[in-house]
């Protein structure tokens, strides 16, 4: 059961407001870096190190940037932003359970994909993987994603939010129009 756009939009707006009222604006994509860092640091513990004054730094320039902010989060995964993303998964799962989960035939691909590209699971998985690679590379280059830049950014009237949104929709709409000509 999907909410109509008015109720759904109002609820989503209240969540974004609640976040900035209580803690800070919502953002997600940084946590892909943090999870990478956690895995990498588990394999090679020299990746994130603590300096003598208690601060964290990293042999990786990106994790070390902004005074080791990311390095610190890699070393302490139980921080607000990382737990936020885990909780988001739980919330989505509870909602899905409440509406009888995703229909079996849609768990691999949405109907519009099937209508345009056929039933090959491998093809859909490959596209999702490549899409994910490009999305997260882009999000990190941009310094945020649809949540952090677009929703949180536009809501705060930040210039970066507008620049990001123009770039993202300016690319996504033509690509979608080219890729998905048949309605599914």
């Amino acid at each position: 059961m999907i909410l109509n756009w008015k109720t759904g939009g109002l609820a989503l707006g209240l969540v974004f407001f609640l976040a900035v009222l209580i803690v800070k604006p919502i953002g997600v994509s940084t946590q892909f870096v943090i999870l990478d860092g956690i895995v990498w640091n588990a394999v090679d513990s020299s990746v994130v190190t603590q300096t003598e004054d208690g601060k964290y730094t990293s042999s990786n320039a990106y994790l070390a940037k902004s005074n080791g902010k990311y390095a610190k989060h890699v070393a302490n995964p139980l921080n607000y932003s990382f737990v936020f993303v885990l909780a988001m998964m739980v919330g989505a799962a509870i909602s899905a359970a409440g509406r009888g989960w995703v229909p079996k035939e849609e768990r691999v691909m949405p109907p519009i994909w099937r209508a345009n590209f056929g039933d090959s699971h491998a093809k859909r998985y490959a596209a999702a993987f490549i899409g994910g690679f490009i999305v997260l590379y882009g999000a990190r280059l941009a310094g945020g994603c649809t949540s952090g830049h677009m929703m949180s950014g536009l809501m705060q009237t930040s210039l970066s939010g507008y620049i990001f949104t123009i770039g993202a929709f300016g690319a996504a709409i033509p690509v979608a129009l080219m890729m998905y000509k048949k309605e599914g």
Partner: peptide, 30 residues
């Protein structure tokens, strides 16, 4: 509590990349 991100050239370029992948996959990070 406001947290404003920096406007940089990379925000636009990254936004374009994200948009391309978003349309291909049908998902964004969140």
């Amino acid at each position: 509590h406001m947290s404003v991100k920096a406007a940089e050239i990379g925000v636009f370029v990254g936004g374009i990349l994200l948009g391309i992948g978003w349309a291909i996959a049908g998902f964004c990070p969140g």
